[in-house]
């Protein structure tokens, strides 16, 4: 078990290194474009261009450039965004990350819970109205674009019906840190949580139902019934427990890409200052250092989450444990 974990850790570090090289290459080593101009931003003066060139070592060999960049990103953390008047990039991300984390964790909580309940009930009542209703609802959830749903809820809760008793509690757009006001934090996030979760509830409940229905034909499910267990126990202890293995792998990847900035649209719509919105603003300003830093940050999350999923796999599935 321990050597397997260590080996996985080594692999993760190697992948992270590869990702960083790739990101660096895409942004700064693409032939035919001067990275200096990209970092300095549009209409930069020759003095700034020269300063950037020396600071980033763009007159030196590529490995040195890479090392300089990584040093600025991870060690000295003084990578600055010239388009945004010299603001440091790393602290920006450090400020934005908790907001995104709060948004995604809350949404994940909702979507996992809701989809397990919906998927299991749909599978248990296969081909009845319960099944059809849930699966249709899931399909609708998948089809609704998150920015549209966000805008519509904003329209309803912020302006149209804001003054009714139903939505008067909804605060204005924006974020309230948990340390300042837990209640306000919850009120500010609960609607974004639900909006972000809707599509995932749709996908996950449908995937889980399909898995459970496929499992129902498995020999071990028949054995469980032949043992005289109750249908509930067969479904939960044998079916759901086995289906969780695929569920977890799906979840790990979606969760990671959301934390890494994939919740961009939700953040923009609800004015939450998270990593997604940071990326969005950097993109509109062509603020290259910020874009690179957020891409790097997101890649790290996806790779780390992958490693975590693999380890959870080890816990969930004894067959994987032995194959390692």
């Amino acid at each position: 078990m321990i050597p397997a974990l260590l080996r996985r850790l080594g692999q993760t570090l190697l992948v992270l290194f590869g990702v960083s090289v790739l990101v660096f290459a895409v942004f700064f080593a693409t032939p035919g474009a001067d990275p200096t101009a990209r970092i300095a931003g549009r209409n930069a003066s020759p003095q700034i261009m020269e300063k950037v060139r020396r600071e980033y070592g763009f007159d030196r060999a590529l490995p040195v450039q890479y090392a300089t960049m990584m040093k600025k990103l991870f060690i000295t953390r003084d990578l600055a965004s010239y388009a945004d008047r010299g603001e440091l990039v790393v602290p920006q991300i450090e400020q934005a990350a908790p907001v995104t984390a709060c948004l995604v964790c809350g949404a994940a909580f909702i979507w996992v819970g809701a989809s397990i309940i919906m998927g299991t009930l749909a599978a248990a009542f296969r081909d009845t109205w319960v099944d059809r209703t849930f699966m249709l609802a899931g399909l609708v959830g998948i089809s609704i674009p998150v920015f549209w749903l966000g805008q519509v809820t904003n329209l309803i809760t912020q302006s149209r019906y804001h003054d009714t008793w139903l939505f008067s509690w909804v605060p204005g757009l924006g974020y309230v840190p948990f340390s300042e006001d837990p209640g306000g934090w919850f009120r500010a996030l609960v609607i974004p949580w639900v909006v972000l979760a809707v599509m995932f509830i749709g996908i996950y409940s449908r995937v889980l139902r399909a898995d459970l229905v496929a499992l129902a034909g498995e020999d071990f499910m028949r054995t469980a019934r032949a043992k005289g267990l109750s249908p509930t126990r067969v479904m939960l202890r044998h079916g759901l427990r086995t289906a969780l293995v695929t569920f977890v792998s799906l979840f790990g990847l979606d969760f990671a890409q959301l934390v890494g900035g994939g919740a961009l649209l939700t953040e923009v719509v609800f004015g939450l200052p998270g990593v997604g919105r940071l990326t969005y603003r950097a993109l509109t300003n062509l603020d290259l250092p910020v874009i690179m830093a957020t891409v790097m940050y997101s890649a790290i999350f996806v790779v780390v989450a992958n490693a975590v999923v693999d380890m959870v796999y080890l816990l969930l599935d004894p067959r994987v444990r032995d194959a390692r």
């Binding site: 020999d219 071990f220 032949a226 043992k227 005289g228 109750s230 969930l316 599935d317 067959r319």
Partner: peptide, 23 residues
């Protein structure tokens, strides 16, 4: 029938590999 199943009438299946829950 469930109370009977597994207690008074038990069943074994062809493929013992797939007949046990793997986890």
């Amino acid at each position: 029938l469930r109370a009977l199943r597994g207690r008074d009438i038990a069943m074994i299946f062809q493929d013992p590999m797939t007949a046990f829950t793997p986890v």
